[in-house]
Nucleic acid binder design. Structure first.
Lengths: 208, 208
DNA sequence: TGTACATCAGTGAACGCGCGTTCACTGATGTAC
DNA sequence: TGTACATCAGTGAACGCGCGTTCACTGATGTAC
């Protein structure tokens, strides 16, 4: 991810964006913990201090990266679903869409491990207020919404069950993490696909 | 987790163990990244250097913590399964055991978030060799073995399907993480239980 | 039973590192007249 | 069209921090004789 513009002037012109791009690169390379303000500035060719004209500090930069990463993930899922052929039977079509979305999810995670990890995981700014109170799940994470809608469509097309969104999400999220940095890393591509398909079967059949 | 002994002599007597306990405490409080050699030594009341008599360095300390955490997790699962009443119908019994193990898994994760995160997640010692080659999943992670065996028992009791172990694991792992540090943290205990049970239903029905 | 001495298990000072952040500053930009 | 000047967006040096790790050391321990 490289910044678009770049007149080599004293005033950068688009430093905020350039820093975000650099930070996204960093996350892609090594996950959220590699998002380091000084390094992002270094890559853009600017003094660390300059970043403070555009961000409150490291925290804000990291949050921006996370948002970006979530968007990319959702896009990957939608792309995967778009590639999926439809079906006359609406139930079958709904199943296929669900599976495709999940596949897109895991695929993104496997392809961009660092960015994926940046997308989730608490960005705890040292001394975090530990999860308290009621409150709903954070609103509008598109990846999650996509899964939920796909499950609802599956319901409408004939099944029972609902609110299984979180379950589906859990499965694909967990699978991604186990493949990425857990004990399932080191799997051959072949075995990995097996595991993915088995999990998808569970998700789909669990929703039926 | 406090060390057992402690004659206040110049020679500590059981420093290795004491350091491990301190490190486990640290992980419990803040996850693997909070496992800091200097802090562990500080808590034991010993100079940082002393740790090097017993560990290669931070990496070895962290690996030891991980092993410990995995053991504790497996124990929690087995305890949960032991609490579960049996059933005459072996298929039902197998289902219950599977669900209980999963519940134990998620329960442990929710109760000991830091320790749980220390149990999995690559301990990458900076400049890690990225997941390559074939190789199987890491051997003998008891938590995983437990799930796998439960699924096999379920098969034997009547179902089809097998090798769904990874799928089940993915689900509980993902769920745990979403609850712990993902967008599902902040859920009320009530809604959390809903989500847990829905996911478990998916796991069990997916194995059927 | 007493003693010399090798070894074991600590100490404390210091190293270099990279981080986030603050400070006082200065060069570039664009707007009012 | 030209100029004064406020503002904006950079710079570079410095801060304190805590980390992992190394070094040369010393006090405690236990064993051979």
């Amino acid at each position: 991810m490289t910044a678009i513009s770049g007149g080599k002037t004293y005033h950068h012109g688009d430093l905020r964006n350039a820093l975000i791009c650099a930070a996204v690169d960093l996350a892609t390379e090594g996950g959220p913990e590699r998002v380091v303000l000084r390094e992002a500035a270094r890559r853009v060719g600017v003094s660390p201090t300059a970043a403070y004209r555009h961000f409150e500090g490291r925290g804000e930069l990291l949050r921006t990266v996370r948002t970006h990463a979530r968007t990319r993930l959702a896009e990957a899922m939608e792309r995967a679903a778009a590639r999926e052929p439809g079906a006359d039977d609406p139930a079958l079509a709904a199943e296929r869409r669900l599976a495709a979305l999940c596949r897109g999810y895991v695929g993104f995670a496997v392809e961009h491990p660092g960015l994926y990890r940046a997308a989730f995981g608490a960005v705890r700014p040292a001394g975090d207020p530990p999860a308290d109170g009621a409150a709903s799940p954070e609103p509008e994470i598109r990846a999650f919404t996509l899964l939920k809608e796909a499950l609802e469509a599956l319901d409408r097309a004939g099944g029972r069950r609902s609110a299984a969104g979180a379950a589906a999400w859990s499965a694909v999220h967990g699978l991604s993490l186990l493949l990425l940095e857990g004990p399932l890393r080191r799997l051959s591509a072949r075995r990995r696909d097996d595991v993915v398909e088995t999990t998808l079967a569970m998700v789909v059949s669990g929703a039926r």
